[in-house]
């Protein structure tokens, strides 16, 4: 059926919400082509991957790129592979792939928790892990788990690759260290071998954006915390590690009151705001509870050897 035989109804802003401006559209088939396009157009271009953030922003005219580069047709950037003590995740891996991955469930349990809590099935089938990071929302749920697993990001450009710790990748709401000609290509994640991890968030309804979120990685020896890493979302301009609190946790009995006391330090490390989703005060309170809950789940996983 060729549709030109049916007279189309004109699509206008009156009958549906359209993307209200024109742009050039590219659909490169290889990484090399993408990088060349990015090199040519720089910050005039936007990368379209899952589209679940970009198209919302374009419809609302929050961004008006002159060039849109759809990268989803590129093969070879959608993978989750084991590599020694690391797991490598291609930037175009769908959140649903991450959720269904046995490797992630076993070695990055906090990330499994996080993607399960993100959006609906429909969104998880479209959205990519690279897109979630590059969108750089303070509420990006994949960020805290990746931060506690010491993730690094591989940024590619025509000039070659550079590797950056994820903790240095975020600059602020919507802002990253990506140069205009760079593409996030891969995420390298440390496996939990000696320890385990967990992620918790509070949101208004199940598929909603986080009001606050926390990921914890913990190693425990004879009931004492040997090593702990904490990352928090939605409580600062960017997802961040609570390194001071982490250092205070080291050496404490995991089930002691001292842990609760140490968590009070989180207050000094975060700078939550009041917005449509919640108040700064509630976020301060919730982040401590979330860390405690995540700590408990991670410890239970460690003891039971069970994941998921």
């Amino acid at each position: 059926m060729v549709v030109s035989e049916i007279p189309p109804i004109n699509i206008t802003a009156r009958n549906t919400r359209i993307i209200p401006f024109e742009y050039e559209y590219y659909e490169p088939r290889s990484l090399k082509e993408v990088l060349e396009l990015l090199d040519r157009y720089g910050d005039q271009a936007r990368i379209l991957a899952g589209g679940t953030d970009l198209l919302v922003k374009m419809k609302a005219r929050l961004v008006e790129p002159r060039v849109v580069i759809n990268v989803k047709k590129i093969d070879g950037l959608r993978y989750i592979v084991e590599d020694g003590e690391q797991v490598r995740i291609g930037a175009l891996t769908r959140l649903r792939d991450v959720e269904n991955s046995e490797l992630v469930k076993k070695y990055i349990p906090a990330l499994h928790d996080a993607v399960k809590s993100m959006g609906s099935i429909q969104i998880r089938n479209m959205a990519t892990i690279g897109g979630n990071l590059c969108n750089a929302s303070p509420a990006a749920d994949t960020a805290p788990p990746l931060l506690v697993h010491n993730a690094k990001v591989v940024l590619s450009s025509v000039g070659g690759d550079r590797v950056l710790p994820l903790a240095e990748f975020f600059k602020g709401p919507g802002l990253t260290m990506l140069k205009p000609n760079e593409l996030l290509r891969e995420i390298i994640v440390e496996k939990s071998i000696a320890g385990s991890s967990a992620f918790k968030k509070v949101s208004r309804v199940a598929v909603d954006l986080a009001i606050a979120s926390a990921a914890v990685y913990v190693e425990v020896e004879d009931g004492f915390i040997r090593n702990a890493r904490i990352a928090l979302g939605s409580v600062a301009p960017k997802p961040l590690r609570a390194v001071k609190t982490e250092s205070l946790l080291r050496g404490l009995r995991i089930d002691s009151r001292e842990v609760l006391n140490a968590l009070k330090t989180i207050d000094e490390e975060i700078s939550p705001i009041t917005d449509v989703r919640s108040t700064a005060e509630y976020r301060r309170y919730a982040s401590k509870v979330l860390v405690l809950d995540a700590l408990e789940v991670a410890y239970a996983r460690l003891k039971g050897g069970v994941h998921g």
Partner: peptide, 26 residues
Amino acid sequence: ERGECGSCTILLDGQPVTSCMLLTLQ
């Protein structure tokens, strides 16, 4: 029109996705 309600769901190669968040070209 922002991928939250699911009313515009279609199956793309058998998987549910929201058609308001897809360019037809994709």
